[in-house]
Structures are given as C-alpha cells and as structure tokens.
Design a protein around this nucleic acid. Structure first.
Lengths: 194, 194, 194, 194
DNA sequence: TATGAATGAGGCTTCATTCAT
DNA sequence: CATGAATGAAGCCTCATTCAT
C-alpha cells in the first residue's frame, strides 16, 4: 500500500483553497496543512507558490486544447462541429468548476512570464475556435456583420461566467445547460435570413 | 484655490493600481505614493485598504442601479426598454473599464460582510433586469424554453467579460459594439417563430 | 446658560475610559469623542495624554493628603485617630473607585518624572500614616515585633485591592465594610497581650 | 549541544521587560532583541504579543494552584493548613516577583477571552482557599462576623501588594516576612474570645 | 526525500501630536 | 478659543522561502 502522492495532494488542496479563498488569501502553510504534508515536502515538488497556481493553469490549458483538437479532428458540418465544441467546453467547465474559478480570477497573480504564456495559449485556442466561425461565415451560414473577435468573446464570456453563478446544487442539468447555452450562441450566430 | 481632494486622489490611484496589478499585489504604500499623500492622511479618510476596494464597488453598484432605474422608469415597449438597458450597460462598462476589471476580479478580497452586501445589491439589480425578460416572455415575444436565470447569465457574462478583452486602443467603436452585443443577445432571446 | 466645562468633560471621559479599558488601550480620539469635544480643544487644555493621566493622580493625591491632614489635625487617642483615618480611606476609595483603578494600575504609564512625583507624595502620605503607628507602639498599644513598613503595607494593600474586587452592585455597605476592614487591621495591630 | 531554547529566551525577556516597563510600553522588537532572536522566530512559537503575556499568567496560575493542592492534600489542623498555605503563597510571590508585577498590573491588557479565563481560574483558587476559612468558622475558631469574601480579600490584598513594595535588596528576610504577614492575617481572623 | 525551525522583508494599521485656518 | 486634516514614527504581524539536519 502506498501513501498518497505528495504532489497530487498538494495540488488538490491548493486548488480547493485558491477557489474558496483566492490565491492571495491562501498561505502555503494552509495548503500543506490541508494536504497533510510538510512545507519541506511541498517545496521539494514545487519551486514556489506561483508554481502551484501555474500547474492549475497548465492543466486547464492542456485539457481544453486536447478536447478542441479531438473534436475538430473528427470533422463534420461546420455548425455541428461548432456545436460539439461549445457543448463540450460548457460541460468541461462545469466538471472543472474550481479550476475555472481560479483560472479566470487569478491570472494577474502569476509571474509576468507565465501570464504571457497563458495569454499565448489562450490565443492559440481562440484562434482555432475562430477558424470554425470564419469557415461558417465563408459558407454563408454565420453572420459576418459583427467582428469575429466580438463573436468569440460573446461565446467565451459564457464560459468565463459559469463559475460565478453555476452551482452543483442548482436545478440545472449539466448537459441540458450546455445545450441551452450553445443554442443561444448559435442562434445569435446564424444569419438572420438563414 | 485648493489642491485636489485627498480622498479623491487616493481613490483614483487605488483604482488604477488595483486594475493594473490586482488588489493583493498593490500595497497601501504604493497607493499613497501614487496619490501624493501620506499614509496617515489616507487613513483619515478610509478605515482600511478594504475600504478603498469597497468604495469602488459602491460607486459601480450605485451607478448601475441608478441607470437601470432611469431607463426602466422612462418606459416603452419591452424589447426597446431592454435594448436601451443593455446598450447602456455595455457603454457604461466600457466607460468604467478599470472599475469593471476590479469589480469582477476582486470580490473575494472584500470582507465577508461586504461580499454579501455586493451580492445582495447585484441580485437586486439582476432581479429588476429579470422582470423585463419575464414581461417579454409573457408578451410571447421572448423565448421561455430556457430558464430566465440562464438568459440573464447569458447577457451579464458579456458585461463581465468586457474588461478582459476590450481595449480602448482597439478598432471597436463603443456605441457600435454596444449595439452589436445587444443585438446578439436579443437575437438569441426572441422566439424562433417570432 | 453655559456649556459644560471642556476640561472637566475631558477628564471625566478620560477617567471612565482609563478605568474601563486601561490607559494604553484608550486613544485620545476615544476620549474627545466621549467628552463631546474636539482634539484641538482638548490639546488647548492638556499638553498631552500623559497630562490627563497625571491629573487623575494629582486629584487623588491631593484628596488623600487633605483628608489625612484634617483627621490627624482633629487629634484624639491614637487608636481612635488611626481608626478614623483608616475608615475614611476605605470610604474615600470606594467613592472614587474608578480613580483607584487607574491609580493603582497605571503608574508605570506616566513619564518617569511624574512617576517620581507620585512616589514622593505617596511616601509623604505613608510617612504621616506611619507616625500614628509609631506613636501607638511608643504607647505600648501596638505591636512592635513586625516592622512598621510591613504594617503599613498590610493596611494599604487592602486599599490597593479594593478596586479589584469591590462592586457597587454587591451587598457590602460602604461604611460597614470600612469598619470591618479597619477592625481587621486594628486587631492584627494591637499587642497580643493588650 | 544546542543554544538556549528560543521560546524560553523570549519568555524570559518578555517577563523582564513587561515587569520593568509595562506591557504596553514594551515592543515586540525590544523583546526579540533582548532575547537575541528574530521576530519571525518568535512568531513561530507565539501567535501574538498577547500570547506572551498570557504565558506568564498561565505559568503563575498553574503554579499557585499546584501548590495550594499539594498543601491542602497533606491535611492537618485547619489553622496550621491555612498558615502553611499563606506562608507558601507569600514566599512563592516573592520568588516570582516579576511575574507578580505583571500578573496584578496587566490583566486588562489580555484579550477579553483570556481575561475571563484568568478570572475563572483565580476564582477557583479563591474558592478553595475560602473552604479553609469556612471550615475554621465551623470549628468556631475563626470569626464569622465579617463576610468570608472580605476575609479572603484581606489576605490576598497582601499578596497583590507585595510586588509594589517588596525589594530583594531590602532588609526583609523572605521566610520571616511570610511568617509575619501570615501571623497578622491569622490574628485578625481568630475569634476575639478565642 | 523530507523536516520544520528560522529568516527577513514587507504589509497594514494606529495614534499622539501639530498647525494652518 | 477651537477645528480637524495631516503628519510621521512606530507598532504588530504575515509569509514565501531557505537550510541545517
């Protein structure tokens, strides 16, 4: 029988505390206590508190990218691909609500270098997402009277906002909510004369 | 003729620094230096650093509430009132971009009491906004296959997201953007068979 | 009609607060608020916070000295004079309980010079009190197998301790208590073979 | 071989400075300097300055209680037990004069919770002491024309007062003084017709 | 690998006192 | 006489990180 992995326990505790109280309000001491490890052990695996925070970003960025790649790789009609992507993002965001809470709230607490790294990877992600919209516009299915950047923001704002209002205790069914949000987005995205 | 008001200068500096670096990364020392006053003077007007943060919330909450009240008081067709409200919120949010940055990012840094106060007043605001949507549903103009709470979140997510991507240097014209975001929202809100 | 005297109000408030919370835990701001005057006004009458404290000592020292002088001046049998003095001190201490609380607790908060001044005047007082005891010893009425300094301490300890336990709400009648404490002291003071 | 324990050194320094200058006039800076440790080290062992103060109370309360228990457990004639207790308290108070100075002067500087804790434990102690007196009264050896609470106060006032006047440089022999004070108390306690 | 005591810099806040009006 | 805004020094405490073991 093996004791729980130190790094994992620390990350789990850090995530929970960062989501609950915020990064700045959480001390390393609190984290190691909640994880049941000592400071020395933690610093053996992470070089800094910032490292813990970035690990959360890293995990989210990788996850989102991987899923986007998988879905777009499968191919299909533009709107159906986009629908799949959107619903997946919503569901994933709900499944990783604490991560999202931290992700959207604490970017400015990272070191400047890592802030740039995060920005870069999110831009990559948005760019790939944008391709779908552009393709739809070229197919004359999606409106082009609104800048693509606005359309993208219009969708991601919903994702961003989820951790602020969604509650696992609430009545919303996760898949249903994903379908609803996606439908709202697609409706506003389609050409009026479509 | 007297020099600028101490409280005003401090608040201005605090807002700027909080928006740039985040609340936790900004020291009272930095604020008073930027404001050109002494720490003692600052504490003559504000009881704590938290007080400075809350002052920003207070100002935003009052402003939003006031504008919502004014526009709804003017009356009119439901969709037109809603359109006016939405466009105004977008424009106001752009005009107060630093305030918005702080507002949506630092709520968890307030004292618990004040977090509740903010929540309470935002709920009030949302409730009044919800009335417009419900009215539109009763008039059979707005869809009712999606919970009102989701519709509201769908709109406010855009507001929330603005400080994350909007740049005064960007190409977007503020009024035009307001019209676009509002139109995207209304399009998704109208009944499909409308 | 004339408004209340500023200096009196300040002193009254200072005494109350010092007795309740201690000198160090009471801010000048609290005092002037409780007194209903402004800081400027207070500093017009008192040069420092220490001044307020010393005023309380001054009042107590003068009062005690005056009463001791009056009673001894009246003359009489040694034990009767001593009894009168002791009972009077007890009664006075009860009447000025807040003053006593401050007096016995805050001496070390005075400036060194004033601490010496207080010591000097208390010594004067004790010396005069000691004279009565010595006279009684010379008259072979009071024991002399215990140093006078110990006998004096034995009595003043009761005075000193009063603010620590006496409560105006309690059952003790002030005059009766004075008689009891004095009798306990005199009993222990008299020669065993008396 | 290791250098002196940090916590012990800090407590020793704190006690000395609190006794000399008072709690409020002593800064944490002074304490750690006198102890030869850093502030961080101190806060590793004590959560606050108040903690240092309470540690002094804790030590005294435990000591007094322990000794009282030991002596009363040994049993014996009421007056002899009481005499042993009283003499022991005096001697102990002299041995721990700085502790006593702080103990009787700084209670109001503790947090309210801790003030209550101290009150509670002192009451316990007094209650046990009172039992001896009551027993003596029931045995018709001690007077009962004065409330027990007054008799107790009469004795503890002497203890309380010791740090105010006793000096290790003085002529008093500690054991002799203990005997004298105790005898004064017992004399006043015995029935007049005894 | 792991410990946890120790560091040391920096943070927020308090407050007696002054002074221009 | 009186105001109360402003000063400036000092106070208590936190905490990420290091290091001898």
């Amino acid at each position: 029988m093996k004791t729980k992995n130190v790094a994992d326990e620390v990350l789990r505790a850090a995530l929970e505390l960062f989501a609950q109280q915020g990064y700045a309000n959480t001390s390393v001491q609190q984290i190691v206590q909640a994880a049941g490890v000592t400071k020395g052990a933690m610093y053996h695996y992470f070089t800094s508190k910032d490292d813990l925070l970035f690990a959360i970003y890293e995990r989210m960025l990788s996850l989102q990218k991987r899923r986007l790649d998988e879905i777009t790789a499968a191919g299909g009609e533009t709107e159906e691909v986009l629908r799949a992507v959107c619903e997946d993002v919503v569901v994933t965001s709900i499944d990783f609500l604490p991560e999202g809470t931290v992700f959207f709230r604490s970017q400015h607490m990272l070191t400047p270098e890592r802030q740039n790294e995060v920005k870069r990877r999110r831009r990559e992600y948005h760019d790939k997402f944008a391709e779908l919209i552009v393709r739809g516009q070229e197919e004359k299915r999606f409106r082009d009277d609104v800048p693509v950047s606005v359309l993208i923001a219009h969708f991601f704002s919903d994702i961003h906002y989820l951790p602020h209002w969604y509650s696992h205790e609430g009545p919303e069914n996760e898949a249903e909510l994903a379908a609803q949000i996606t439908e709202l987005f697609l409706r506003s995205l389609r050409r009026a004369d479509g």
